[in-house]
Amino acid sequence: MKILIVGAGATGGYFGARLADAGRDVTFLVRERRAEFLRERGLRVAGLERELRIEPKVATAGQLGGTFDVVLLTVKAAGLQSAIADVAPAVGPETVIVPFLNGMAHMDALAEAFGAEKVLGSVVHLVGTIDAAGDIAVLRPLARWTLGEQGGDASERLARLVAEVSVPGIDVVPAQDGLDAMWQKWVFIVSAGVVTCLMRGPVGDIAAVPGGAGFVADVVAEAGAVAAAAGFPVSPGEQAETVAFLTEDGSDFTSSLYRDVTAGLPNEGEHIVGDFARRARSVGVDTPLVDLALLQLRVHEAGMARG
């Protein structure tokens, strides 16, 4: 099975390195600068029981030779449209497209470009970053990949893909419904983003002050109400787990959205929080806390644009 991974950042690089290390046929589609770096240094993953290093096959836009069986889109939202254009020559009649992006807006874009029938629902959990050396640093021992057909039908192609990507270092979970799995994660990342961006700190500090834990619970309930109205309810047990995680005593956890904002980097506020707020309106759910966080993110972006 020929696998094309679009992007070689922390997430795409980690999953691609694991697949290639297990003997899978993996090619990374990256920008020229990243391609040069990977050719010279290799793709390295630190923070594991041993450093993982591979000599990756890389290609840049215009260098793809033929179609691939699977395309894994691991770019962030800002790079989605250019990635769609770059990857188009690699998509054939039987190609399966699996996005790693958060939220749901990208599913519409991929359906418009390639047809919804080509796209699987997919959720990845990995806590990692690109370190100062340009390598991938894994920060927590978690690498889970949940994927499934949209709408929940079992399929032979899903079974084949699950078998192909089930390699050491990746916990692969077939989902009964790929879209439902995506909504469950969306509720979590919206909750985490709203909590940390509004309160400007790690969740342990937020929970430690009077009213902090109650605020977290209100945000999680608000996000859960949107998912339920959209037809993808989060179970009470899962909501309770999210609240517990986001109120853990002494936890230094912050959302990736918060980390990008405080570092002055491009962020996915519109893709994650903005689209969530828009969908809340479409299903008739009021989201004052989500809206407040979105307003703050937009003000921050306006300030960044002014320089």
Rank of each mutant, 00 (worst) to 15 (best):
I3N: 02
I3M: 05
V6M: 05
A8Y: 00
G12R: 05
G16E: 13
R18K: 13
R18V: 02
A20Y: 03
A22M: 02
A35S: 12
A35V: 05
F37S: 09
L43C: 06
R44M: 07
L52R: 10
R53V: 13
I54T: 10
K57N: 15
K57H: 04
T60E: 14
L64E: 13
G65I: 01
F68E: 14
D69S: 09
L72K: 00
T74M: 03
T74G: 12
K76V: 07
K76H: 00
L80V: 08
S82Y: 00
A83T: 09
A83G: 04
I84R: 01
A85D: 15
A88V: 05
A90C: 04
V91S: 06
V91C: 06
G92V: 12
T95V: 10
F100V: 03
N102I: 03
H106F: 07
A109R: 07
A109H: 06
G115S: 09
L120D: 14
S122Q: 06
V124L: 10
V127R: 14
G128P: 08
T129C: 10
I130H: 04
I130A: 01
D131H: 09
D135S: 13
D135I: 02
P141Q: 11
T146K: 06
G152A: 03
D153P: 07
A154W: 11
S155V: 12
R157A: 12
A159D: 15
R160M: 07
V162F: 03
V162C: 13
P168G: 02
G169Y: 04
D171W: 04
D171P: 12
V172P: 11
V173Q: 10
V173K: 11
A175G: 11
D177Y: 08
D177L: 05
A181E: 10
W183Y: 11
W183T: 04
Q184I: 06
I189Y: 06
S191C: 09
C197H: 12
R200G: 13
V203S: 09
D205E: 15
P210A: 00
P210Q: 08
A213N: 00
A213D: 01
G214L: 01
G214V: 01
G214N: 06
F215Y: 10
V216H: 03
V216A: 01
A223G: 09
A225R: 13
A225E: 15
V226W: 04
V226A: 03
A227D: 07
A228Q: 15
G231H: 05
P236L: 11
Q239Y: 04
E241V: 05
T242I: 14
T242M: 15
A244Q: 15
A244E: 14
T247Q: 07
G250H: 07
G250V: 03
D252Y: 00
D252R: 15
D252M: 13
L257M: 14
T262Q: 11
T262G: 08
T262A: 11
T262C: 08
G264P: 12
P266F: 02
E268Q: 04
G269E: 09
I272V: 11
D275A: 09
D275H: 13
V285T: 04
V285W: 00
V285H: 03
D286W: 00
L294G: 09
L295F: 00
Q296I: 09
R298C: 03
V299T: 12
H300I: 12
M304K: 15
